[in-house]
Design a protein around this nucleic acid. Structure first.
Length: 781
DNA sequence: GCGATCAGCT
DNA sequence: CACAGCTGATCGC
């Protein structure tokens, strides 16, 4: 078997193993300090990357013939040499490999001495790069191949086994290794990035970040499957799998699941006329008048399935069928429910959830204005029943949990409930939220209910509610200039005044074209009276211009709306005064899994990472940012590295609105050639594909791209507690760093405890209203 | 053609 | 995951 090692043409710390005639099956055993990343395995090519300042040793213990391990002459940058520390291999090589000549060797300068000090501080060489060492080494393990820049660290051994399996090992041997390891552990980016995860090897696809995790059946799915087995059927392995159509009772076991649905649907279609009202074009009409008299829920399935189909999501029919979801149940489903029944794809789930809220709104509208609709009696009854139920009983036991139940020692009398859905009219009315016509003319006159978090209890004000413009409100607050908060705001806005910070006002004026007459600037920490309500705003520490707003209405129940915010202790000093009754809280990361470091720590991390990666003068650094946001990160990078940052002219214009000092602005340049640190939209860093496009654009100027993707999500889920991660594909490196402009879970908890409100209204509630209660309860435990 | 909105995607 | 935002399709004017 032949294996060739070559250095990457551009970047020193990538080693490519080629097994020309082998279908690779790989396993690598690495020890605690991960220094080798298996990068791609494709077309018999295995590419491995070493973090900078590390070296690689490779042993060959495969096969017994001399052909086992050959370094072809073309691998000119590799030196084949003997290791300094023979004992390092946990499985000593059995045979000396035939070493091929290395014609390029003499042209390559000797590498510096590699010690624990130089391993981090020396910038003159890429320490992981594949350079020959001029030093000679003891002839103990003749079969080793060292691709290190200097003969030293012995940090990793890899072997090619008889079966073509590449195995490897590292054992701590000798002081050199120890010192090196300690030095590395202490200083290196990679050690810091990876020390927690201890993932010994990453097997990455070429499109690493697009790798798919095939979702295995959740426990819930399994349960659902079990529960959906027909009750008397022998599901314990017996073969009594007879399945009957619930309508015509024909045996349909022989049909596929899809065919069964088709069959059942046909039966429903043919039987429906007998029941009086079903028309294929009006599936909403059919419903079971009295469920007690119609215990067979399946007879109510057809409208559901048709509805699902009408959304173009026929492939989920079986999910609804399996769950025996009837029309009533359907309307009470939350997005969380959809997820739990197995609609795991975001797109379809959102689509269904949106369609469901439209359905519910229709139902509400019809109950509120029955005269406005001309509906069949059946529909009328159906809606009546569903709305009656809404008013009288909870759809789900957890839905109407009192928020205040989660507050130990707080009175619960007469305290507002967390609404199950914005559609719950009572809660909407309570908070002053009303139905808003989304479009006066379009959208078929459909309307949306203003979510509670966009309202200020006890006032007629709206916050970040431009999606829900109504004529009955003329005080519109905007907490910051991010699309998801100003969405719906256009230059034709004519609904009153917009209240925001100076920075936000500038941006709204510049980017959207709202005239200044419509804008009312709120100054930080200054109380003003607006329509009889005292209003004070504070820096929200989110993006430039972001504010939190305290409203003190005449009823004495102060409301604090955080907008989007990142907690800082200074906030608490400002918030002294009247106690907060309702807290509208940015719950973006309201889950214990999101516990990321302070921004300063992440900035420091990025600065050090740049320094560590900067060994190659032809490196382009990219830092992701939003329209506004993350400025602190790249400004700090500029300051520390004393290097200008490139931004495009549009971004510069934006930054000029953000109130940076002249000093700070000097760190920005719109001349690309003046800087090799560029600020780019965050989404351009999202995939390696895009990064490759960027790389191609700069192919003459840069040989290495190092991108920083700053996002709080980095620290979620499986990446729990990891301070970030470093991904690499060839000449492109992407760091994902947990730089967040939202509060972490810990910070939220701290904030809530300090503010101690009576009611919390979450602003982000992606998993449905049920989880809102859970979310809040987590904050208070 | 333009602005606004929405779905889909990252 | 989907922070926040881009892209393209569609609709109404």
């Amino acid at each position: 078997m032949h294996c060739s090692l070559t250095s990457h043409p551009f970047i020193g710390n990538v080693v490519v193993f080629r097994f020309p005639s082998l279908s690779l099956s790989l396993s690598l055993f690495l020890s605690s300090e991960l220094v080798l990343t298996l990068h791609t395995v494709k077309r018999n090519t295995l590419s491995l990357s070493l973090p900078p300042r590390r070296s690689l040793m490779m042993w060959n213990t495969a096969g017994d013939d001399d052909d086992d391990f050959q370094i072809p002459p073309s691998s000119s940058q590799l030196s084949i040499r003997k290791p300094l520390h023979p004992t390092i291999s946990h499985r000593p090589p059995r045979k000396k490999p035939r070493l091929s000549p290395n014609p390029g060797k003499e042209n390559i300068p000797p590498a510096p001495e590699f010690t624990s000090d130089t391993c981090f501080s020396s910038g003159s060489h890429a320490l992981g790069s594949i350079l020959p060492s001029s030093s000679s080494t003891p002839d103990c393990i003749p079969s080793s191949v060292d691709c290190s820049s200097a003969g030293d660290s012995c940090s990793l051994a890899a072997e090619v086994g008889n079966d073509g399996v590449l195995v490897g090992g590292e054992e701590k041997k000798g002081e050199c290794f120890k010192a090196n390891r300690e030095g590395y552990s202490r200083n290196s980016m990679e050690a810091r990035l990876l020390s927690k995860s201890r993932v010994s090897l990453r097997l990455e696809d070429e499109e690493e970040d697009e790798c798919c995790f095939v979702e295995s059946d959740s426990e819930l799915d399994v349960l659902i499957k079990l529960c959906s087995e027909p009750e008397g059927s022998n599901s314990g392995g017996g073969k009594d799998d007879s399945i009957q159509c619930p309508l015509c009772e024909t045996d349909i076991s022989g049909l596929s699941e899809e065919e069964r649905h088709v069959h059942t649907n046909n039966c429903l279609d043919t039987q429906a006329p007998e029941q009086g009202s079903l028309k294929s074009s009006c599936f909403i009409e059919e419903s079971v008048d009295d469920p007690v008299q119609h215990p067979e829920l399946v007879s109510d399935l057809s409208p559901v399935l048709k509805w699902v189909r009408s959304l173009g999501l026929a492939k989920y029919e079986d999910v609804f069928l399996r769950e025996e979801i009837d029309w009533d149940t359907l309307q009470s489903l939350t997005e969380e429910d959809l997820l739990s029944i197995g609609i795991t794809s975001l797109g379809p789930r959102k689509k269904i959830a949106n369609a469901l809220s439209a359905l519910r709104e229709e139902a509400c509208a019809s109950s509120a204005e029955p005269q406005a609709q001309s509906l069949s009696n059946v529909t009328e009854r159906q809606r009546e029943r569903s709305t009656t139920r809404k008013a009288s009983e909870p759809r789900k036991p957890t839905a109407n949990k009192l928020i205040t139940e989660f507050f130990p020692g707080q009175a619960t009398d007469g305290i507002r409930k967390l609404p199950k859905e914005p559609v719950a009219e009572k809660s909407a009315a309570d908070s002053g939220c009303r139905r808003a016509a989304v479009r006066r003319n379009g959208n078929n006159g459909k309307s949306k209910v203003v979510p509670q978090w966009n309202c200020v209890p006890g006032t007629p004000f709206r916050v970040d509610a431009f999606k829900y413009l109504t004529r009955d409100c003329c005080h519109w607050f905007l907490t910051h200039f991010h699309l998801d908060h100003y969405q719906g705001l256009t230059k034709s806005f004519s609904h009153g005044k917009i209240y925001c910070s100076l920075i936000t006002a500038k941006l709204v004026n510049m980017k959207i074209g709202i005239p200044w007459e419509r804008l009312q600037v709120l100054h930080l920490n200054q109380k003003v009276n607006i329509a009889g309500v005292d209003v004070t705003c504070f820096d929200a520490n989110h993006c430039p211009g972001s504010i939190m707003i305290r409203f003190e209405p005449a009823n004495g129940k102060a409301v604090l709306h955080t907008g989007d915010f990142r907690y800082s202790e200074e906030m608490l000093n400002l918030l002294t005064g009247s106690p907060i009754s309702s807290l509208v809280l940015d719950t973006t990361y309201c889950n214990p899994q999101y516990d990321f470091p302070k921004q300063e720590a992440v900035i420091q991390f990025v600065v050090e990472a740049i320094q560590a990666e900067a060994f190659n003068p032809k490196t382009l650094f990219l830092i992701g940012s939003y329209t506004i946001g993350k400025e602190r990160l790249f400004l700090e990078v500029a300051r520390v590295l004393r290097e200008k940052i490139y931004i495009n002219p549009a971004k510069l214009k934006l930054l000029e609105c953000l109130g940076f000092s002249k000093e700070d602005m000097r760190w920005f340049t719109v001349k690309e050639e003046e800087s090799h640190i560029h600020v780019v939209p965050l989404w351009t860093l999202a995939s390696f594909k895009r990064l490759k496009h960027i790389a191609n654009r700069y192919t003459n100027r840069y040989s290495l791209i190092v991108a920083f993707s700053p996002t709080g999500w980095t620290s979620g889920k499986s990446k729990k507690k990891s301070p970030g991660r470093r991904l690499q594909q060839g000449t492109i490196i992407r760091y994902e760093v947990p730089y967040s402009e939202h509060s972490s879970f810990t910070e939220l908890k701290e904030f809530v405890q300090q503010v101690s409100p009576e009611v919390i209204i979450p602003s982000v509630n992606n998993d449905g209203p049920d989880s809102a209660a859970a979310m809040v309860s987590m904050l208070l435990t």
